[in-house]
Protein backbone atom coordinates (compact mmCIF):
# COMPACT_ATOMS: atom_id res chain seq x y z
CA UNK A 1 0.00 0.00 0.00
CA UNK A 2 2.62 2.55 1.11
CA UNK A 3 6.24 2.22 0.14
CA UNK A 4 8.88 4.76 1.12
CA UNK A 5 12.39 4.39 -0.29
CA UNK A 6 15.44 6.35 0.82
CA UNK A 7 13.45 9.46 1.70
CA UNK A 8 15.30 12.71 2.37
CA UNK A 9 13.37 15.76 3.60
CA UNK A 10 14.45 19.29 4.45
CA UNK A 11 12.72 22.20 6.08
CA UNK A 12 14.31 25.63 5.84
CA UNK A 13 17.46 24.04 4.48
CA UNK A 14 17.85 21.67 7.42
CA UNK A 15 17.68 17.97 6.70
CA UNK A 16 15.26 16.19 9.03
CA UNK A 17 14.67 12.86 7.29
CA UNK A 18 17.90 11.28 6.14
CA UNK A 19 17.34 8.19 4.05
CA UNK A 20 14.23 6.56 5.47
CA UNK A 21 12.76 3.24 4.31
CA UNK A 22 9.29 2.23 5.41
CA UNK A 23 6.41 0.21 3.99
CA UNK A 24 2.88 -0.61 5.06
CA UNK A 25 0.50 -3.27 3.76
CA UNK A 26 -3.28 -3.51 4.00
CA UNK A 27 -4.61 -4.67 7.33
CA UNK A 28 -1.47 -3.75 9.26
CA UNK A 29 -0.98 -1.50 12.25
CA UNK A 30 2.44 0.07 12.56
CA UNK A 31 3.80 2.08 15.45
CA UNK A 32 6.60 4.56 14.95
CA UNK A 33 8.36 5.53 18.14
CA UNK A 34 11.30 7.71 18.90
CA UNK A 35 12.54 10.65 20.94
CA UNK A 36 11.42 14.21 20.20
CA UNK A 37 12.89 15.97 17.22
CA UNK A 38 13.85 12.87 15.25
CA UNK A 39 11.45 13.43 12.35
CA UNK A 40 8.25 11.57 13.35
CA UNK A 41 5.91 14.49 12.70
CA UNK A 42 7.88 15.48 9.60
CA UNK A 43 7.28 12.04 8.15
CA UNK A 44 3.54 12.28 8.86
CA UNK A 45 3.28 15.75 7.32
CA UNK A 46 5.24 14.77 4.23
CA UNK A 47 2.91 11.85 3.61
CA UNK A 48 -0.11 14.17 3.99
CA UNK A 49 1.43 16.73 1.63
CA UNK A 50 2.33 19.76 3.70
CA UNK A 51 4.01 22.18 1.28
CA UNK A 52 6.59 23.63 3.65
CA UNK A 53 8.61 20.42 3.60
CA UNK A 54 11.00 19.85 0.75
CA UNK A 55 11.62 16.32 -0.42
CA UNK A 56 15.22 16.28 -1.66
CA UNK A 57 15.56 12.59 -2.40
CA UNK A 58 13.89 9.19 -2.48
CA UNK A 59 10.33 8.19 -3.34
CA UNK A 60 6.94 7.54 -1.82
CA UNK A 61 4.49 5.31 -3.67
CA UNK A 62 0.97 4.76 -2.45
CA UNK A 63 -1.38 2.27 -4.14
CA UNK A 64 1.00 2.39 -7.10
CA UNK A 65 0.75 6.20 -7.38
CA UNK A 66 3.66 8.57 -7.01
CA UNK A 67 2.36 10.23 -3.88
CA UNK A 68 4.67 13.21 -4.16
CA UNK A 69 2.90 14.25 -7.38
CA UNK A 70 -0.46 14.58 -5.65
CA UNK A 71 -1.91 17.71 -4.01
CA UNK A 72 -2.83 17.30 -0.32
CA UNK A 73 -6.56 17.18 -1.12
CA UNK A 74 -6.01 14.45 -3.71
CA UNK A 75 -4.01 12.40 -1.24
CA UNK A 76 -6.96 12.66 1.15
CA UNK A 77 -9.37 11.68 -1.63
CA UNK A 78 -7.17 8.66 -2.36
CA UNK A 79 -7.66 7.58 1.25
CA UNK A 80 -4.85 9.12 3.28
CA UNK A 81 -5.77 10.65 6.61
CA UNK A 82 -3.54 12.55 8.99
CA UNK A 83 -4.59 12.81 12.62
CA UNK A 84 -2.85 16.03 13.63
CA UNK A 85 -0.67 16.36 16.67
CA UNK A 86 -1.92 19.93 17.06
CA UNK A 87 -5.34 20.22 15.40
CA UNK A 88 -5.90 23.74 14.07
CA UNK A 89 -8.67 25.97 15.43
CA UNK A 90 -10.73 27.50 12.63
CA UNK A 91 -13.12 30.09 14.04
CA UNK A 92 -16.29 30.63 12.03
CA UNK A 93 -16.24 27.32 10.14
CA UNK A 94 -18.69 24.90 11.73
CA UNK A 95 -17.85 21.22 12.13
CA UNK A 96 -20.97 20.37 10.13
CA UNK A 97 -20.06 22.47 7.15
CA UNK A 98 -16.42 21.39 7.31
CA UNK A 99 -17.27 17.69 7.31
CA UNK A 100 -20.04 18.05 4.78
CA UNK A 101 -17.75 19.87 2.38
CA UNK A 102 -15.00 17.30 2.91
CA UNK A 103 -17.28 14.28 2.46
CA UNK A 104 -19.01 15.66 -0.59
CA UNK A 105 -15.75 16.61 -2.26
CA UNK A 106 -14.41 13.12 -1.61
CA UNK A 107 -17.63 11.62 -2.98
CA UNK A 108 -17.41 13.78 -6.07
CA UNK A 109 -13.85 12.55 -6.64
CA UNK A 110 -15.16 8.99 -6.54
CA UNK A 111 -17.99 9.86 -8.92
CA UNK A 112 -20.68 9.68 -6.23
CA UNK A 113 -23.50 12.22 -5.81
CA UNK A 114 -23.42 14.55 -2.76
CA UNK A 115 -24.88 13.08 0.41
CA UNK A 116 -28.36 14.41 1.18
CA UNK A 117 -28.55 16.74 4.19
CA UNK A 118 -30.64 14.36 6.31
CA UNK A 119 -28.43 11.36 5.57
CA UNK A 120 -25.39 13.41 6.35
CA UNK A 121 -26.67 14.50 9.76
CA UNK A 122 -27.59 10.92 10.68
CA UNK A 123 -24.19 9.71 9.55
CA UNK A 124 -22.47 12.41 11.56
CA UNK A 125 -24.44 11.54 14.68
CA UNK A 126 -23.58 7.87 14.35
CA UNK A 127 -19.86 8.58 14.05
CA UNK A 128 -19.90 11.05 16.94
CA UNK A 129 -21.00 8.25 19.25
CA UNK A 130 -17.93 6.26 18.36
CA UNK A 131 -15.69 8.79 20.09
CA UNK A 132 -18.31 9.91 22.63
CA UNK A 133 -18.46 13.45 21.29
CA UNK A 134 -21.75 15.03 22.18
CA UNK A 135 -24.36 16.56 19.86
CA UNK A 136 -23.15 20.08 20.52
CA UNK A 137 -20.22 19.34 18.23
CA UNK A 138 -22.13 20.10 15.05
CA UNK A 139 -22.69 23.79 15.68
CA UNK A 140 -19.25 24.51 17.00
CA UNK A 141 -16.44 25.97 14.96
CA UNK A 142 -13.69 23.54 14.03
CA UNK A 143 -11.65 22.88 17.20
CA UNK A 144 -12.40 26.34 18.56
CA UNK A 145 -12.45 26.28 22.33
CA UNK A 146 -12.10 22.48 22.37
CA UNK A 147 -10.12 20.99 25.25
CA UNK A 148 -6.99 19.03 24.37
CA UNK A 149 -8.89 15.77 24.73
CA UNK A 150 -11.81 16.99 22.61
CA UNK A 151 -9.45 18.02 19.84
CA UNK A 152 -7.92 14.54 19.69
CA UNK A 153 -11.31 12.85 19.80
CA UNK A 154 -12.38 15.20 17.04
CA UNK A 155 -9.50 13.91 14.90
CA UNK A 156 -10.70 10.33 15.37
CA UNK A 157 -14.26 11.45 14.66
CA UNK A 158 -13.11 12.92 11.33
CA UNK A 159 -11.26 9.70 10.59
CA UNK A 160 -14.47 7.77 11.26
CA UNK A 161 -16.40 10.09 8.94
CA UNK A 162 -13.90 9.87 6.08
CA UNK A 163 -13.10 6.14 6.38
CA UNK A 164 -9.50 6.38 5.15
CA UNK A 165 -7.47 3.52 3.75
CA UNK A 166 -4.28 4.72 5.41
CA UNK A 167 -4.56 6.64 8.67
CA UNK A 168 -1.49 8.26 10.20
CA UNK A 169 -2.07 9.32 13.77
CA UNK A 170 0.54 11.79 14.90
CA UNK A 171 0.93 11.69 18.70
CA UNK A 172 -2.80 11.29 19.10
CA UNK A 173 -2.13 10.18 22.66
CA UNK A 174 -0.24 13.28 23.78
CA UNK A 175 -2.04 15.31 26.39
CA UNK A 176 -4.74 12.70 26.96
CA UNK A 177 -5.71 11.32 30.33
CA UNK A 178 -6.29 7.58 30.59
CA UNK A 179 -10.07 7.78 29.97
CA UNK A 180 -9.69 9.90 26.87
CA UNK A 181 -6.88 7.62 25.72
CA UNK A 182 -9.19 4.62 25.97
CA UNK A 183 -11.92 6.41 24.01
CA UNK A 184 -9.48 7.36 21.27
CA UNK A 185 -7.94 3.87 21.12
CA UNK A 186 -11.34 2.25 21.11
CA UNK A 187 -12.34 4.44 18.16
CA UNK A 188 -9.24 3.47 16.23
CA UNK A 189 -9.72 -0.23 16.97
CA UNK A 190 -13.33 -0.17 15.80
CA UNK A 191 -12.25 1.40 12.52
CA UNK A 192 -9.70 -1.34 11.84
CA UNK A 193 -10.50 -3.43 8.80
CA UNK A 194 -8.58 -5.95 6.70
CA UNK A 195 -8.48 -3.46 3.82
CA UNK A 196 -7.13 -0.46 5.69
CA UNK A 197 -3.97 0.33 7.59
CA UNK A 198 -2.95 2.52 10.50
CA UNK A 199 0.34 4.13 11.41
CA UNK A 200 0.48 5.29 15.02
CA UNK A 201 3.20 7.77 15.87
CA UNK A 202 3.87 8.00 19.57
CA UNK A 203 6.46 8.94 22.09
CA UNK A 204 5.22 6.59 24.80
CA UNK A 205 4.51 2.91 24.92
CA UNK A 206 1.27 3.58 26.85
CA UNK A 207 -0.97 3.96 23.77
CA UNK A 208 0.22 0.61 22.45
CA UNK A 209 -1.45 -1.14 25.40
CA UNK A 210 -4.72 -0.14 23.77
CA UNK A 211 -3.87 -0.10 20.07
CA UNK A 212 -1.84 -3.23 19.57
CA UNK A 213 0.56 -2.86 16.65
CA UNK A 214 1.77 -5.56 14.31
CA UNK A 215 5.09 -3.77 13.86
CA UNK A 216 7.07 -1.30 15.90
CA UNK A 217 9.75 0.94 14.37
CA UNK A 218 12.18 3.20 16.08
CA UNK A 219 12.90 6.48 14.32
CA UNK A 220 16.11 8.20 15.32
CA UNK A 221 17.88 11.08 13.64
CA UNK A 222 15.83 10.86 10.49
CA UNK A 223 16.06 7.11 9.91
CA UNK A 224 14.38 3.96 11.10
CA UNK A 225 17.12 2.34 13.14
CA UNK A 226 15.25 -0.68 14.46
CA UNK A 227 12.06 -2.56 13.60
CA UNK A 228 10.37 -5.42 15.35
CA UNK A 229 7.12 -6.78 16.73
CA UNK A 230 5.05 -5.30 19.54
CA UNK A 231 7.58 -6.52 22.10
CA UNK A 232 10.04 -3.92 20.79
CA UNK A 233 7.89 -1.22 22.33
CA UNK A 234 8.18 -2.88 25.73
CA UNK A 235 11.92 -3.25 25.38
CA UNK A 236 12.16 0.42 24.44
CA UNK A 237 10.06 1.40 27.46
CA UNK A 238 12.33 -0.62 29.71
CA UNK A 239 15.67 0.51 28.34
CA UNK A 240 14.77 4.05 27.30
CA UNK A 241 15.81 5.95 24.20
CA UNK A 242 19.40 6.08 25.44
CA UNK A 243 19.58 2.45 24.38
CA UNK A 244 18.76 3.41 20.80
CA UNK A 245 21.55 5.93 20.67
CA UNK A 246 23.96 3.09 21.31
CA UNK A 247 22.72 1.04 18.38
Amino acid sequence: MLNIQDLHVQINGKEIIKGLHFSVNKGEVHAIMGPNGTGKSTLANVIAGKEQYEVTGGSITYKGLNLLDLAPEDRAREGIFLGFQYPVEIPGVSMTNFMRTAINEQRKYKGLPPMAAGDFLRYMKEKQQLVELQDKLSNRSVNEGFSGGEKKRNEIFQMAMLEPELAILDETDSGLDIDALKIVANGVNKLRRPDNATVVITHYQRLLDFIVPDFVHVLYEGRIVKSGGKELALELEEKGYEWIKGI
Binding site: R75, A102, Q106
Partner: peptide, 15 residues
Protein backbone atom coordinates in the same frame (compact mmCIF):
# COMPACT_ATOMS: atom_id res chain seq x y z
CA UNK B 1 -3.81 30.99 7.78
CA UNK B 2 -1.63 28.40 6.01
CA UNK B 3 -2.02 25.83 8.77
CA UNK B 4 -5.80 26.12 8.61
CA UNK B 5 -5.69 25.79 4.81
CA UNK B 6 -3.59 22.64 5.05
CA UNK B 7 -5.90 21.21 7.69
CA UNK B 8 -8.92 21.66 5.41
CA UNK B 9 -7.11 20.33 2.35
CA UNK B 10 -5.86 17.31 4.29
CA UNK B 11 -9.52 16.29 4.57
CA UNK B 12 -9.99 16.36 0.81
CA UNK B 13 -11.28 19.92 0.39
CA UNK B 14 -9.86 21.59 -2.72
CA UNK B 15 -7.77 24.70 -2.44
Amino acid sequence: DQDALFYLKSRGICD
